[in-house]
């Protein structure tokens, strides 16, 4: 391959970041996990282009992104379903797409859901910080948010060529199941009570199962905020000394409205955690919930 490899950002979109599987293992130094919010859609995009699942992809927010391939590349778009065009011509969403050098990739507005993922064969080769290329919007680690004119380098193809550009049978159907399961409909979140459920009255926990909330427009990569539901009431006074927070923790600030901690959440927090949403499809679904989407918590058993 000759000439510069890489993709030039033509239109950055509302909020597009480089993401991978984040920075696990550094929480004790105050470093958030970060990484793709919809981990399943991120992994699928990588598989479609023959990358290892920890290769860096782009995570868009609502209105997609436009890129120019400076050299031939294979890309795939998953997550929130959207129109995908290559130099103006419609191409498949959820399948590998080969782009000749100079072609423009237009990832359109999400038809449902919120975040689409763009993988390129070889992965986006921006410099890694603490082993990850993810942009962490809480701590500022990782590359800056995409801006028009940014040149995104592409890494060497991964060691999985057998599952390369033909997609190896993983097609749009699989992308749909991994990408947009809860989009548009009610978000049903299994909640396993603890570690601080005893800070709340039994009545208000009973009310949590009976009532619905809505996704607040203040939600971001740090947390999915809820509104328009009954506030959880504390069974005790006092302050909780700061303690470690896990991904998917449902923290309850003084206003009583649950906040689901997502990838860029702070590693410690001082409000009680009533319960935890498990990683995998339930937490991935939070990444695709638009503001205004209904939220219901259902009790998950202990194992």
């Amino acid at each position: 391959m000759s000439g510069p490899r890489g993709l030039l950002v033509l239109r950055a979109g509302a909020l597009t970041t480089v993401q991978d599987r984040g920075r696990p293992g550094w929480a004790h130094l105050g470093v958030p996990r970060s990484g793709a919010l919809d981990a399943g859609a991120h992994a699928l995009a990588n598989r479609l282009v023959g990358n290892p699942v920890d290769a860096a992809t782009l995570e868009t927010t609502l209105d997609g992104v436009a890129l120019r391939a400076l050299a031939p590349v294979t890309v795939a778009v998953t997550g929130a379903p959207c129109a995908v065009r290559a130099s103006g011509r419609p191409v498949a969403w959820g399948e590998p797409v080969w782009l000749p050098g100079g072609a423009e990739l237009e990832v359109g507005r999400a038809e449902s859901g919120l975040r689409s993922y763009v993988a390129v064969r070889g992965g986006f080769g921006v410099p890694a910080v603490l082993g990850s290329r993810a942009t962490d919007l809480l701590s500022g680690l990782g590359p800056p948010v995409l801006a028009a004119g940014t040149l995104l380098p592409v890494g060497p193809p991964g060691r999985d060529p057998a599952r390369g550009a033909d997609g190896a049978g993983a097609g749009a159907g699989a992308a749909g199941s991994a990408g947009a399961g809860a989009a548009g409909s009610e978000l049903v979140l299994p909640l396993r009570l603890g570690p601080r459920a005893d800070w709340f009255t039994a009545e208000s926990i009973a009310g949590l199962w009976r009532s619905g909330y809505r996704v607040s427009a203040l939600s971001n990569r740090i947390g999915l905020r809820t509104e328009a539901g009954p506030p959880l009431r504390r069974a005790r006074g006092g302050e909780l000394p700061s303690e470690g927070m896990v991904l998917g923790a449902v923290q309850v600030p003084p206003d009583g409205l649950p906040v689901v901690f997502l990838a860029d959440h702070p590693v410690t927090g001082g409000y009680p955690v009533i319960g935890v949403i498990p990683e995998g499809p339930p937490l991935d679904a939070t990444a695709q919930a638009r503001p205004g989407t209904g939220v219901r918590f259902v009790r998950a058993g202990r194992n």
């Binding site: 004790h28 303690e243 470690g244 927070m245 410690t268």
Partner: peptide, 15 residues
């Protein structure tokens, strides 16, 4: 274990 996170009165073992 993925993370060992001390805090004010707790240590979190995650992963």
């Amino acid at each position: 274990v993925r993370d060992i996170v001390p805090a004010a009165r707790t240590v979190l073992l995650d992963g």
